[in-house]
Computed example of a mutant assay.
Amino acid sequence: MKTFKARGLLAVIILSAALAGCGVQDKPGNQPGSTAAPTATPSPEPTAALNEREAIIYLTDTELAETIEKSVKLQYETDTDLVKAAIAELQKDPAENVLALWQPIEITSVELTDGLVVLDIHLPDEARLGAPGEMLVIETLKKTLFQFDFVQGIQLLVDGAEVETLMGHVELEYPMVREQE
Score class of each variant (00 low, 15 high):
L10M: 13
Y58F: 01
Q152H: 08
N97Q: 09
L90S: 00
G133S: 04
P44Y: 09
R7F: 15
L157N: 12
L156V: 14
G160R: 11
L157M: 14
D26A: 00
Q75C: 07
I57A: 05
E162M: 15
E179M: 08
F146D: 00
L99Y: 11
D159E: 15
E179R: 09
N97D: 12
F150I: 04
T165V: 09
Y174L: 14
H122N: 14
Q152R: 07
A20W: 13
I57T: 03
R53Q: 03
V110A: 10
E111N: 12
Q155C: 13
T62H: 10
E52I: 04
E66H: 02
P175H: 13
R178C: 08
L15Q: 10
D159K: 10
P124A: 00
T39N: 09
E54Y: 03
S43L: 14
L59S: 00
L123H: 02
A131P: 11
D114V: 01
L19K: 05
K2I: 14
Q155Y: 13
A11S: 12
V24A: 07
V117H: 07
T144W: 04
L90F: 00
L123V: 02
M135I: 03
L19V: 13
S43Y: 11
H122A: 15
L119G: 13
A100F: 07
E164S: 06
V137K: 06
